[in-house]
């Protein structure tokens, strides 16, 4: 069954090891939500997905995948 996965963890690491808290503050969610997204336990809204992509300076397809 296809599911939404993401590269948030790797992108955070590439972005000078950005902390989960820093990313959470930048996109306006709690740190627990970033943890849930990284563990594929939560698919964020389009708004938050775009904000995450914006923080890493890449397109949304480079962060989230449907496979």
């Amino acid at each position: 069954m296809p599911s939404i996965t993401n590269h948030v963890r790797r992108l955070r690491f590439d972005a000078n090891e950005m902390s989960q808290k820093a990313l959470a503050d930048a996109v306006g969610v709690t740190r627990q939500t970033i943890i849930a997204i990284e563990k594929n336990k939560y698919s964020p809204s389009l708004e938050v997905a775009f904000k995450i992509a914006q923080v890493f300076g890449c397109s949304i397809e480079e962060v989230f995948f449907y496979q």
Binding site: D25, G28, V29, T30, Q32, T33, A36, Y42, P44, S45, V48
Partner: peptide, 11 residues
């Protein structure tokens, strides 16, 4: 525990 004191879209 929750220093920012707010709930987000997931909550």
């Amino acid at each position: 525990q929750r220093a920012d004191g707010h709930t987000d879209e997931r909550d």
